[in-house]
Design a protein around this nucleic acid. Sequence first.
DNA 1: AAGCCGGGGCG
DNA 2: CGCCCAGGCTT
Length: 353
Amino acid sequence: MNSISKPLLQWFDQYGRHSLPWQAPHSSPRGGQSKPANIYHVWLSEVMLQQTQVSTVIDYFNNFIQYFPTLKALANASEDAVLAQWAGLGYYARARNLHKTAEIITEQFQGNFPQEFEQVLNLPGIGRSTAGAILALSYNQHHAILDGNVKRVLARVHQVEGHYSQAVTLNKLWQLAEFHTPNNRTNHYTQAIMDLGATLCTRSRPDCERCPISNLCAAYQNNTQASYPQSKPKKKKPTRSIAMLVFVKNNKIHLYKRPSKGIWGGLWSFVECEDTPNNIQKAQLTFDPQALITQHLPIFKHSFTHYHLLIHPIIISCHSTQAEFYPPDQLELGVPKPVEKIIAQIALAALAS
DNA sequence: AAGCCGGGGCG
DNA sequence: CGCCCAGGCTT
């Protein structure tokens, strides 16, 4: 069996992505880099890029390193300050683990990012693929990665049967990933196979005519590109309905910090309950017996990977509660996207009145 | 092995 | 509307 690494590396030198914000500047195509990669940047980008597309990450990455220029700065920040810059990116456990890892590295590794695979793998939020990517991209260590791009490329090259949510398929893909990863230029190869997946070997309409490894690709030879990777067995998504109670007092709104476990963990949100009159009344009275509903905003839908959420925002004015209230126009707290949406609507309504 | 965890973009 | 994205953690 032939490795795809040689033609892939050759293609990468000319057509790969060499100027992403987290890549070392002036990385020369062949033979090493004039400047070493900043492992803090590589680590941060790898975490941000988990289940998130490059185009989405770029702005968040640039903003994040403005606020937290170094690993030390990140470790010294509060979790809320980190979450505030992560808000909108999703999968908030990533941000909490990022912050925790910065603290661990500061305390246990004297502030230096570990260079041993097992140590990196043990850090929270870093699994097998991310650990391999960090060490390969930063130090040219010989490790395989297996992200969405690599899975798709290898599934096509080898016509791998089954979906990678099944352990058998995943193991096969890891074996193939390790087989193809070369001993030399592992850093460039790692970038190259991701670039190939992102720019040519795309999910729909792959550009096989420009692909440097089409002569090694079983799917191309058999014209079965559309059948790989095989699609995931689908399941129906349930729908839930909640009310978000926007308690207002002196032009400020009440928010509470959600528990780290569960949806929007660690972010700040409105009091919520099941969207029924009884539950709403109960929640309202519990918060403040004197509270009065002043407005119902239209119900809108927010979808997750595994369920749909119908959100019914209700504006409630109150007076006699001791709870914390915050000025909506200068929040320094991370809030979920739907909360941000509701706050924007309130601001508009206030402007109109 | 399966479920959970966001938000956006695309066909 | 369904699918997937530079996945990892929990159950």
